[in-house]
Structure formats: C-alpha cells, structure tokens
Amino acid sequence: MSGGTGTVPERRGRLIFIGLVLIAGLVALFAYAVTGPVGIEERFASATGTGPHDAGEGGSGAAGFTLEGQPVLYGAILVLLILGCVALYRKFAL
C-alpha cells in the first residue's frame, strides 16, 4: 500500500497481516456462532453473570455504589470534573 513495488519485506509484511486477519476472523466467526447476534451490554451481562436486567445498573454491594439513573449525582460529578480540569489546565498549561 505504501509503495506498491512488492519487495520481499513488503510481501512478508502483507503475508503476516493477512495471516493475522484470517486467524482473528476465524476465531471471531466461531465465537459469533456460539453466542449469536447479541449486543455488547448483553454479552457482558451474560459473561459476568449480572443478568440482562442488571446490565445497566450494576450491583449494590456493601462497598459498592450506584450512580446509574441518578442524574443529579452525574451532574455533580461532571461539574466537579470540569472544575478540576479548569484548575489543572490553569496550573499546568503547556
């Protein structure tokens, strides 16, 4: 692609790349055949055992915390982050 001359190192690079692509593609096809067309969130929920209904909410263990579905907390943290970024930018501006 970079020159198109087809020298030995270039052909070697393409062969390695094509080989890796084939391996990755075959592995992915096999995995897809096992799971079917499932969204990424559902895939994670299934893998970790959180279940489809908990996929967007997480647990609430003794040391855990829940922000999901609480826009006020999200907003507060977002404001804190913005303030922190402004402070850091003012102090460490390149």
């Binding site: 990424i40 969130e41 895939r43 994670f44 970790t48 959180t50 996929a55 967007g56 909410e57 997480g58 647990g59 609430s60 263990g61 040391a63 855990g64 915390f65 829940t66 922000l67 999901e68």
Partner: peptide
Amino acid sequence: HLEDGSFT
C-alpha cells in the same frame, strides 16, 4: 461495559 457498582 460494566456499570458503577460492579467492582468494589
């Protein structure tokens, strides 16, 4: 792709 509270 896990939400808050998934990790301790």
